[in-house]
């Protein structure tokens, strides 16, 4: 009998221990319930959503949650109507357009910020001053696999040192965009390079190898200024442009600057006032410029905010891109009526 009591006491102690633990957590701030803005999607867009969510929750009291399912995973949830906003580092794909159409989810496509992809080398590398898109293609094209191994093969006057490559893993939007912009086809890349979903690995690799070359988001270059060096890209007019917030914002850095997107559920926008408030907040120039810049991304050009809000207020649905990436699209173009009219048809059957 005594043993039964003891066992019961132990179970009780376990319960009590748990109870105190979550009680101390629960009492810090008793939640009031109510409206929540649900964001999910790309890990590239995550820091922007986190910053916007944090400030919006502080100023309005409306709760914001942000998930990290990736662009593809985010669209799966978005097209089931589970989330209000899906962050994406690339435009919505054909399959995803169909998925959304099947479940009757209409969406408004808004650029939320810009990101520049930087090509980086070791800071001790003195011979690479500027690279053309063709030279990058020579390095990264699928045909180069196992063939282009030295810097000399990229340009005749480079030394015959072996070039070691670091890049994005195939699951990332960065990979999709880089391959489209450089190799001309989304997903077409050589495979014999160090591929990683974590850009810090690329930083470590390139900073530790004098002959290495890699590509990643601009924010990582800014944060690791002494460890790696961003290479200017030669533009069509012959100028060499260094990736920076300024050159990405005025669209002079091409073709490696890209828009990041918010896809907003139209039905939710109609029904939920707190979601409309959030969009208004996210596209107010003062807040957005400050917050987007703070987390290392490039704010939209000044005139884009009113265009984006106008597009949202008019609830213009569909995608500008028709199911694939386009290179060199300006933010104004993708917010304009003209582009919209041309592209709305395939998405809204």
């Amino acid at each position: 009998m005594k043993k039964i009591i003891l066992c019961g006491a132990a179970a009780l102690a376990l319960t009590a221990c748990g109870k105190t633990a979550d009680k101390s957590g629960g009492e810090v701030k008793a939640p009031a319930g109510g409206a929540v803005v649900q964001i999910d999607g790309s890990s590239t867009v995550f820091p922007i959503s986190e910053a916007l969510g944090e400030e919006f929750q502080k100023s309005s009291g409306t709760r914001v949650t942000v998930g990290l399912s990736g662009t593809g995973g985010g669209f799966k949830k978005f097209c089931r109507g589970e989330t209000d906003i899906s962050g994406a580092s690339r435009p919505i794909k054909k399959e995803e357009i169909e998925l959304c159409a099947q479940s009757g989810v209409e969406y408004i496509e808004l650029p939320v910020a810009l990101d520049a992809l930087a090509v980086i080398v070791n800071p001790t590398n003195s011979f690479v001053d500027c690279l053309t898109v063709d030279e990058l293609k020579a390095l990264w094209a699928p045909e180069s696999q196992g063939k282009v191994k030295t810097w000399k093969q990229v340009r005749g006057n480079f030394p015959a040192e072996p070039v070691r490559l670091f890049g994005a893993g195939t699951d990332s939007g960065t990979f999709d965009y880089f391959t489209k912009a450089i190799n001309g086809e989304e997903g077409a890349s050589r495979g014999d390079y160090t591929a990683t979903e974590d850009d810090n690995v690329t930083i470590t690799g390139v900073s530790g190898d004098k002959d290495a070359l890699g590509y990643l988001g601009l924010a990582y270059v800014t944060e690791n200024a002494g460890k790696v060096k961003a290479i200017p890209i030669r533009q069509k007019d012959g100028k060499c442009i260094v990736p920076s917030v300024g050159t990405a914002r005025d669209a002079s850095y091409q073709p490696l600057s890209r828009p990041l997107f918010y896809y907003v559920n139209k039905k939710h926008a109609d029904e939920r006032p707190h979601l409309r408030e959030f969009i208004k907040f996210a596209f107010s120039p003062a807040e957005s410029e400050k917050l987007v810049g703070e987390v290392g991304y490039v704010p939209l050009p000044a005139q884009a905010y009113s265009l984006a809000l106008a597009k949202f207020d008019a609830r213009r649905t569909g995608t500008y891109f028709g199911g694939g990436s386009k290179i060199g699209v300006t933010v104004e173009e993708l917010l304009s009526d003209a582009g919209e009219g041309a592209a709305a048809a395939p998405s809204q059957k």
Binding site: K23, A30, P31, G33, E50, T65, G67
Partner: peptide
């Protein structure tokens, strides 16, 4: 936990059990 769709940014706590 990520697969079932746990969040990453969440700035409020669950309702108190007591």
């Amino acid at each position: 936990i990520i697969t079932i769709g746990a969040l990453t940014f969440i700035a409020f706590l669950p309702p108190s059990p007591i």
